[in-house]
Design a protein around this nucleic acid. Structure first.
Lengths: 215, 215, 215, 215
DNA sequence: CAATAATCGAGACGGTACGTCACGTCTTCTT
DNA sequence: AAGAAGACGTGACGTACCGTCTCGATTATTG
């Protein structure tokens, strides 16, 4: 994957590891950094979406000069992506119950729970903003989608190993079939999105595959 | 379906049917209306996304006063929704081949074709903008999603009648499982979205159901 | 005096004298005309000055189409000038007491009374607007200044005839010396302008001349 | 004299005297300030009057953002007042020839010269604008009228001391009698205003007083 | 302990687009 | 033909943010 222009947390002379030389001059204020990221998430949760969020407002809310924001994040997109990552706690772990369907369903329920919470607004803003900013959607993929997907591969693989899924199945296809409907209902809002929806999808998609693998 | 605030084609004294009374005053300029909608789509296709689109630019491109735009569309969102509707020709018809899987697959291929074309940018802008504007996403649903979905229900029903699908299946769940993956790849762009993807999803989802109905 | 572009009350087919031919079509609405002029004066008295007065507001207040205003008055200036004339009753007559000083003083008191009343705002608007519109200041002169001045000449002439003023005196100079101070205080508002000011000016200017004529 | 809302030269963090603390942030651009004032006077001299002058045009001509204008001047009126003050050089000094009549006449001639020059348009705009904006006319009085008047008082007082004028005379009345006619001809334009007019007024007004003081 | 250097806050700068208002013109049906 | 109604293109309004720029002040490392 190409080098990401949206720096995770630019370190020019921050607290970098061990015995490296520190450049002279005043070091970056860790307090400001945190304050900015916090305000970004806070404002995103409050008001509208990505376009309504203004750097002016972030700087004001964080009691920080605009310059400080621009010094460390090249675009609003980069800032939002960073803020999103920073706020991403690790509640999206995959369990290992011995059943693919159960494992996937439990994790998908967690995702739906996030989408329905205030953090859902941040995700929506990220995807929305990403439609006119390739770097933003890339940041979403790199920081949110891929890390989870790697775990999902393993979960599915365990299912294959246990004979719950056919051996030749396309993992990406399966995962998009499982998560696509959730993302769609989340973004289009044409139908209700509650946690039981996770079970229904798993029932439809994974049951079919199970039957196939039993042929 | 709730009353839509985004007027489809506001008619204060337009050419309304038959013997209705015309309101006094100069009638709305049909030329301006068309020109504005055309410029909106044109600019959306060109540059960035929804937030980059400025009413100022639309008015200039359409050789129209800004006032005229604001007179007829309350927000940029409403305008884009209208413009999108106006440009939505009817290439998304459902065929009737005698096979659900074939019918669905063919129509889904058409959708993917649109998403990959320049008109895809307009759809993306619409969905993106809709994340911070409820009316906009509602407009997308009412003008784009629902009309197609009604036809999809019929197509699936034919499948049930023919015994290709089980009688008690949840149509909305099936449709979201079919279209969700497409929307997800279209918006997140984490994997390639070509027309064969339609076949793969149908294979996964509808095959499983077929097997179930044959039990 | 040059032909005035600001028509007093354009008569295309109004009630013109005797047996003249009337042009065909609907005759001009006398009610609209009066209503427009009335609203103009009313609005001028209310709010700010000439620039704040909008034809849009006049038409609305008079329950009249904007077209009707523009049909009969070429500019806002012309309209205001007309409205001012129409509202100008004849309270500014010169008396004939047998004393120039008394005659002038009495009339000047009337002028001050007008300047201090709400009609003063209209005069101020007229003079102010006239600074960037030659026709407007011309209208003020033609309809307001000159008619009075002609009477003033006669009043002064009586004074000369009676020996109260020297024979060779410059009437225009005298009149500007009498009225200038009033206009100045009215427009610059640097000092109080009450009716006794008329007596003071007359005392200063005309007394001096009387003394001169008695040499 | 009341506190003037129209700041003479707002100093938030300009070069204020001696050891005062500077407020933080980028200091006001002195170049922009001058450029704006210069463009204001320039445009006022060119085109129409006060209402024709647009802040948009000033900002454009001064190569300055509109925001910068609005940041420092609350209204167009305030800006024009400031611009006028800035351009008001000191060509209106009172001489001291030993004769009141000569002193006054010479100064009045200077005033007429200004009124007839391009700067006259600025004065006219100021007085005109002042008719619907109390602060503007106040600015004219404070920056233009009063400074001169103070000198005029002294000039007249010298005349009283020398016995050219009676001891009990009303200085304000005299000054309005002298300057009123000039302002009137300047604003109403009903008669020619050349420099000899100054002599004529002085002849009329001051001669009469001289005679009186000699009684 | 000074000198150097990069940060910080604050806030002014030239811009762009916003959504509104009034302009003067036009097009329509009605009187 | 004139009326009212009201849409039209135009242009200025005053505001909000943009991303950049100068300031003085602060906090580090280096000589």
């Amino acid at each position: 994957m190409a080098q990401n222009h949206i720096r995770s947390a630019a370190t020019r002379n921050g607290s970098n590891g061990a015995g490296e030389k520190r450049s002279p001059g005043r070091p970056r204020s860790e307090e400001s950094r945190r304050s900015i990221l916090h305000s970004t998430v806070k404002l995103l949760k409050q008001q509208g979406g990505f376009p309504e969020l203004s750097i002016e407002a972030i700087a004001a809310d964080a009691n920080v000069g605009k310059t400080t924001v621009y010094r460390w994040w090249p675009t609003k997109a980069a800032l939002v992506a960073d803020a999103f990552s920073a706020s991403a706690d690790d509640e999206l772990r995959f369990p290992n119950t011995g059943s693919v369907q159960k494992d996937m369903s439990l994790q998908m329920r967690q995702l739906i729970r996030i989408f329905r919470s205030k953090r859902g607004k941040v995700v929506a803003a990220l995807i929305a903003g990403g439609q006119s900013d390739p770097e933003l959607i890339e940041a979403f993929r790199d920081r949110f989608l891929w890390p989870r997907r790697k775990q999902a591969y393993q979960t599915l693989q365990r299912g294959i190993d246990r004979g719950e899924l056919p051996e030749d199945c396309d993992l990406d296809l399966i995962l998009d079939s499982l998560y696509g409907p959730i993302y769609m209902r989340f973004l289009i809002r044409h139908d209700k999105l509650d946690e039981s929806f996770a079970d229904e999808i798993c029932g439809l998609v994974l049951q079919g595959l199970k039957r196939q693998s039993q042929d």
